[in-house]
Computed example of a mutant assay.
Amino acid sequence: MRNDSSHRDDTHLFIKKKEADIQIFSTMLTPKRNNTEIIFTLLGLSSDLQPFLFGIFLLIYICTLMGNAMIIMTVTFESRLHSPMYLFLRSLSVTEIAYISVTVPRMLRDFLHKDKDISLLGCATQLYFFCFLGTTECFILAVMAYDRCVAIAHPLHYMNIINKSKCLKLLFGSWLAGMLLSLGQISFVFSLPFCESNIIDHFFCDILPVVRLACADTSANMITILIYSSFVIQLPFLLIIVSYVHILTTVFRIPTAHGRNKAFSTCGSHLTSVSLFFGTATITYLRTNKANESPKIWSLLYTVLIPMLNPLIYSLRNTEFKIALRRLIKNR
């Protein structure tokens, strides 16, 4: 009897041990909820007019691609436009095409699908390129202001100061600054732990809505976002203001009204573009404490409308560019 009882006890222990092993094994196979498996949901532009909005934004996207491609091809194939000013403009157009392509295709896709989920990697990638290209555009606009400042204040030495080598270095520095600064910021953001509620009230993965989803203290992130925004928005804007102070000082010294108007005409397009881009970006990113205000409207301005308007601003107001464009169309 003892042997039977001992045998039953041993069998019972053996079964228990196997059940424990199976439990451990199944736990290992069960996916754990960590940052690599988090799925975000983009609410997008909530509206009953989804097909109508799809058509509107598709038209805007096509116009933006065509307008900026027109600038790129005209500057590339017309040797008379191979001056630093137009090389900077071509680089700005390349940036605009990439910039709008980060957000609008995803938004168009969401207009036609009920499933608006985006993976953590997809969200991080979108946010990185959005910050990278936006930062690059800020620095390119600052470089363009410096170019106009030298052209007006030092016209006789312009080609020596802003030569082709200097032009390429300034452009390379703008792209490199955008790439590295954004990489550090996005790495810091996506090192945060995220909570169960991962609904982003936006049409793309913007930095402030993403940070607010973290289930941890984000005060340090908010401070770094403020510093980052000040550096990539306010610093280039300050450089632009300094450049235009020098421009205005020089222009007011020109004795004739015709000379002053001619000098101002080379800056009008750039000044319009700067006012639109930096104005909307400043309102959005330097108000980090306004958690309850939706940034969607302001975001639409600088992510969608301004890239579409820039080709019109620079081409319609520039006689030299219009002549080169007609010549290019005629020759082709």
Rank of each mutant, 00 (worst) to 15 (best):
R106Y: 03
L65C: 08
N292T: 10
T27I: 09
Y228M: 01
T218E: 02
V150A: 10
I56H: 01
S229H: 10
N221D: 09
F204K: 07
N261S: 15
Q50I: 05
L29P: 05
M85A: 15
I247C: 01
S191W: 02
G279V: 00
K330L: 06
L112Q: 10
T280P: 05
G122N: 07
C63T: 08
H82M: 01
K330T: 14
T11Q: 15
Y86E: 07
N289F: 03
S219A: 09
S46H: 08
K17C: 13
F321D: 01
I24C: 00
S79Q: 04
I227P: 02
L276R: 05
S101L: 00
S275D: 08
P51H: 09
L305R: 04
W298M: 13
N289G: 01
K32E: 15
H258Q: 13
I200Y: 02
T284D: 01
L89H: 06
L316N: 09
L271K: 14
T36I: 11
L92V: 05
S91H: 09
F111T: 15
I225Q: 06
Y314W: 08
E19G: 12
K290A: 14
C267W: 02
N68M: 07
D115W: 09
I186V: 13
I39N: 13
D10F: 11
F139T: 14
G173R: 08
L59V: 15
L305V: 08
L127Y: 00
V242G: 03
L325Q: 13
A142V: 09
L312R: 03
N35P: 01
L133P: 13
T74M: 06
M66H: 00
R90N: 04
S91Y: 10
V143F: 15
T36P: 00
M144H: 13
S47G: 07
I97R: 10
H7P: 06
P51K: 00
L238S: 10
R260D: 03
C167W: 01
S47P: 11
E293N: 03
A263T: 00
V150S: 04
I39G: 03
